[in-house]
Write a protein that binds this DNA or RNA. Structure first.
Lengths: 193, 193
DNA sequence: GTCTATATTGAGATAGAC
DNA sequence: GTCTATCTCAATATAGAC
């Protein structure tokens, strides 16, 4: 769903902003946040560095705008109410595979953001806590959420991140089969010992 | 080119080298590879930047030396012959938890090394392929290795990396319980198809 | 082997013209 | 809104003294 076009200079500014965000995902995604200069992103947008800074006053501001953008998009794309959760998650993984640049940016960012002084550290901290709880609710499927559901949600997130790492490192690595195998494992309860 | 004239001089150079590598793990581990300067590492070793460069002529050379060092250490620490694999892996995870700096460096590096032009890219590519096969052999426990074993090995590595990410992001996150839960899941075959 | 001093490069950010 | 020009800072790396 696209928003109605706004008038005049504002519409143009907004469009440019979108274009910059898209390019930023590509370029940050290829080389990482720290290793990418504002000049490179500016060049990819056909702008000078100063021109880019008109839209995003600092590199950090650009990063955070990016992060919010993605946050917003992700929330739109969940439709687990209509599907069993294993299939809903699988669908979402396929979507991620189609946006390699964004996935790459994410993998890269999480690593850096591990540092407590990284500009996106707080964001990631909160985001992981949030999706652990979200996933647990989904996996509990209408029952009250148990600690075991939380454990399985934690593992699903780990598997997700971990498989993405292996894929990003090696183009020929196919996440689909291991992911589906994981869905099967997570659909069962372990046998007690 | 330069040959050690005495055992003494050589030993001192080697000791310094070791000390540098240890400090480098700490400092790179705290701030990541790109975000850490050679000066910071030099300072941690009580050296000037130029003094550090005497031992490792470039930042990249230091990184690669580090990577080989760790490679060497890891190989010594596997003793799965004496334990069921689930317990052997759990032991190894506990070891990793004790060396937070090294784990942090690794998580950080893998993200960056996703880029094909990163100095450590080749290393990580080969390393993941290698441990996938190694883990598959261990998990097959004396039977011939099947594709399903390879799938489970891939998942174990993913879980490992993924849980570490969550831990590094959040000190209060405890990997032990989810890891053990994962070991239970991976010890079973999924029902039906 | 380690230092000081410095060359060189590239980063983020600012000022002000158009 | 975008540019050129420039400031400031910090990085890697080199040269050469001790």
């Amino acid at each position: 769903m696209t928003e109605p076009k706004k008038r005049g200079a504002y519409a143009k500014g907004t469009a440019k902003r979108e274009q910059i965000l898209q390019q930023a995902i590509e370029v940050f995604g290829r080389f990482g946040f720290h290793a990418t200069s504002m000049r490179e992103i500016a060049k990819a947008c056909g702008l000078s560095q100063a021109g880019l800074l008109h839209h995003f006053p600092t590199k950090e501001a650009l990063l955070l705008a990016l992060v919010e953008e993605r946050e917003h998009n992700q929330e739109v794309s969940i439709h687990h109410e209509t599907l069993p959760w294993a299939e809903a998650f699988y669908e979402r993984m396929l979507q991620n595979m189609e946006n390699e640049a964004l996935t790459r940016l994410w993998a890269n960012l999480v690593g850096e953001a591990t540092d407590r002084k990284h500009p996106a550290h707080e964001y990631f901290l909160e985001r992981y806590a949030k999706i652990r709880e979200e996933f647990a609710v989904i996996m509990a499927s209408n029952s009250p959420v148990t600690d075991e559901d939380r454990l399985r949600a934690t593992l699903l997130i780990a598997i997700w991140d971990g498989l993405q790492t292996q894929w990003l490192l090696d183009d020929t690595f196919d996440m689909r089969e291991p992911f589906q195998y994981a869905m099967k494992l997570l659909s069962q309860k372990p046998i007690d010992r």
